[in-house]
Amino acid sequence: MTAIRALIVDDEEPGRINLRYALAEHAAWEVAVECASAAAARAALAAPDGHGIAVVFLDIQMPQESGLALARELAQREEPPLIIFVTAYDAHAVEAFEVHALDYLLKPFDDQRFAQTLERARAMLAQRQRAGYGAALRAYALPQPDYWRQLSVRSVGRIESVQLEDVLWMEAAGNYVELRLATRRVLHRVTLSRLQQHLDPACYVRVHRSAIVRATQIASLAANGDGSYQAALRCGDTVSVSERYLAAVKALLQR
């Protein structure tokens, strides 16, 4: 089997060494080249044998040019190499990567986390998902609109772009959100509260600590015998409405 060729980009030598040793434990992987800067990585990818590099382990914080800047550039390619971001402390970047289905390694990472990352990359390459990955990378790396219009949903070896306008309502499921579409349900790794921060409040309304509904989906509101409320949705579903969000739902129905 042909080895998966990887490029390591980290301005700190210990970081490069750690990744090199970690990859050496996986026979299906090969370190093609190590670079200490984004400029050196750009040159390596442009070299004749650079076209065979399938995965880039990319540090975020580097002097002169950040890893994010290089990612934005690579995002313009039709089939960019898979990018696995590496970070020591940038929590905001980690959250963004999770939401946009881009993998990351948080320093220091353990063997199990590293193996999971390699498996995701291997599965994506095996299923020829690099075109879909490229679209997801562009969605993150390029300037974003004020509110999100789509989500890049990741599963093993696959990335799917879900348009938020197709989501009728969404329900919390631990650290995931279950997106309810007209004919199916999609599980996305993000908390409901974090997702709400990026939704247009004119289009989506929080009705419960565990549910957000597209405003146009709310058809009516009914009180239960125990004093609780439920909203009937145009798709046929019913959703509990908590007292905290009751006034907002009533105001919506009075428009």
Rank of each mutant, 00 (worst) to 15 (best):
G67D: 03
R130L: 10
D103Y: 11
L102Y: 01
G134I: 01
R72N: 09
A88M: 10
I53G: 02
H92N: 14
A75T: 03
S66T: 10
E65N: 01
R42T: 07
A47N: 08
Y89A: 12
V56P: 05
I84M: 10
Q127P: 00
I84V: 15
A47S: 15
A40S: 12
G52S: 08
A41L: 08
M62D: 11
E78S: 08
Q129M: 07
F109N: 04
H92G: 14
R130F: 04
A131Y: 05
F109Y: 15
K107N: 07
R113A: 15
R113E: 15
I60S: 09
S66Q: 04
P108V: 10
F85A: 09
E79H: 10
P81S: 13
L74N: 05
R128H: 15
E98L: 03
A44C: 09
A75V: 02
D103S: 13
A135S: 12
I53T: 03
A101I: 03
R130G: 03
V56L: 08
G50I: 10
V56S: 07
G132N: 15
Q64E: 13
G134K: 01
L82F: 09
V99R: 02
E98C: 05
A44D: 02
D59E: 04
Q127E: 15
P63Q: 13
E65F: 00
I53N: 02
D59W: 10
Y104C: 05
Q76F: 02
A101Y: 05
D90W: 03
E65D: 04
E65V: 12
D103P: 12
T117M: 12
E65K: 01
A38I: 06
V94Q: 06
M62F: 10
I83E: 01
L58A: 08
A93Y: 04
G52C: 10
E98A: 01
L68T: 08
Y104K: 08
R72W: 04
G50K: 05
Q76G: 14
G67K: 00
L70M: 07
A41D: 06
G134T: 02
V94M: 12
E79G: 00
E79T: 12
M62V: 11
I60W: 04
I83Y: 04
I60M: 08
E98G: 00
L68Q: 02
R77D: 07
R77K: 08
D111Q: 15
D90Y: 01
G52A: 14
P63D: 12
M62P: 13
A40T: 07
P80F: 01
Q116T: 11
S66E: 10
A44V: 08
A115L: 12
T117V: 12
P80I: 04
F114Q: 06
E98Y: 00
P63L: 09
R122D: 03
P81C: 14
L70Q: 00
H100Y: 14
A54P: 07
R72D: 15
A69Y: 00
F97Y: 09
G134F: 02
R130K: 06
P48G: 07
V56E: 06
A96G: 06
A115P: 07
A131D: 03
R113L: 13
A54R: 15
A101E: 03
L82P: 01
D110K: 12
